[in-house]
């Protein structure tokens, strides 16, 4: 027991011994999320790093029931879990779908869209390491513009990722989802508060968690939280929530440089200052738009 008050709930539902890489941001995301949900939770995970990290059957790092599912069906599987609980009249369980960015923004998007459209009471979390990490750093639709991956190899032809990052939260807003938010592992209290809000929703909820990956982003593992913080301070990953269509954006006095953020990571180090300049413009443009959304929806 803590003599002094700890910054977060003390209970650990994610045990040490899992096989995530050193400094894996996905592990922060999981540990904090489970601190918020508590033990009355069932988690369903498709193919992704987190399918491997809990350990080899019959071992697991989770102290909650865990289902491993196929890559494309996270949202279908949690819809089924909710239907089974409903059939048995069990109401006090949080049903949590937990997938990577590839499993969400690419292959799992139709199952997710269906679940949200049906209004299933379940929470879906995308932990975003911005590529297919488990299979060796291939590009996903959530990989940011400019990034090197093993399928956007840069080289002499400068074939880095050209397409912009797909915005999953906005896709959820377009569904009329009752609750959706972004969260960042560098703000665990904010993350926990958002998960708790999502639990209270009588319907679907979606949270996009920014989870840096030292292995795939090419930076030393002790910098995970520093990089996560910089992404939000530089407005590359704004923190905001949308409750029944109403936007709330978290504002920060502190700022960080986009160029510095990028130069800390091997995956961006090939970019020229001009290229970073045009990426910065799109970052600022989106952030300004978000503030307008906030103004517009809060007034309504």
């Amino acid at each position: 027991m803590a003599g002094k008050k700890l910054p977060l709930p003390e209970e650990e539902l994610m045990d040490p011994g899992h096989v995530g890489c050193l400094g894996c941001g996905g592990c922060h995301a999981m540990r904090y999320t489970l601190k918020a949900t508590g033990p009355r939770t069932i988690i369903s995970i498709p193919a992704c790093c987190w399918a491997v990290m809990p350990g080899v059957y019959p071992n697991t790092c989770f102290n909650i029931p865990h289902i491993n599912t196929a890559f494309e069906v996270t949202a279908a599987s949690i819809s089924g879990i909710r239907a089974a609980l409903d059939a048995r009249g069990i109401e006090d369980i949080t049903v949590l779908g937990w997938a990577g960015d590839g499993g969400t923004a690419d292959i799992g998007i139709q199952a997710l869209s269906g679940m949200v459209e049906r209004g299933t009471k379940a929470m879906y979390i995308m932990y975003d390491n911005e590529a297919y990490m488990n299979t060796g750093i291939q590009r996903s639709s959530s990989t940011p513009i400019g990034a090197w991956t093993t399928t956007t190899q840069v080289g002499k032809v400068r074939d880095y990722k050209r397409a912009p990052k797909k915005n999953m939260v906005e896709i959820m807003v377009a569904h009329g989802i009752p609750y959706t938010a972004t969260a960042n592992i560098a703000w665990p209290k904010d993350l926990i508060a958002k998960v708790k809000k999502a639990m209270a929703v009588d319907g679907p909820s979606f949270i996009h968690i920014f989870a840096p990956c030292p292995t795939g982003w090419r930076y030393p593992p002790d910098r995970t939280l520093e990089i996560a913080r910089m992404a939000t301070h530089a407005k590359i990953f704004p923190l905001y929530e949308v409750e029944n269509g109403v936007y709330t954006v978290k504002k920060f006095k502190k700022e960080a440089s986009i160029s510095e953020y990028m130069m800390m990571q091997g995956r961006f180090r090939h970019l020229t200052q001009e290229e970073i300049g045009s990426i910065s413009e799109s970052v600022v443009r989106w952030y300004d738009k978000l503030l307008k959304f906030e103004l517009m929806t809060q007034e309504e």
Binding site: C27, D222, L225
Partner: peptide, 26 residues
């Protein structure tokens, strides 16, 4: 901040589980 839950809180201070700490340096 430990991604491995390899630090436990005893009474009022941190204790490192060297059996599990991976040495990430966070």
């Amino acid at each position: 901040d430990c991604p491995d839950a390899a630090i436990v809180w005893e009474e009022d201070h941190p204790v490192w589980l060297y059996s599990h700490c991976k040495g990430c340096g966070i």
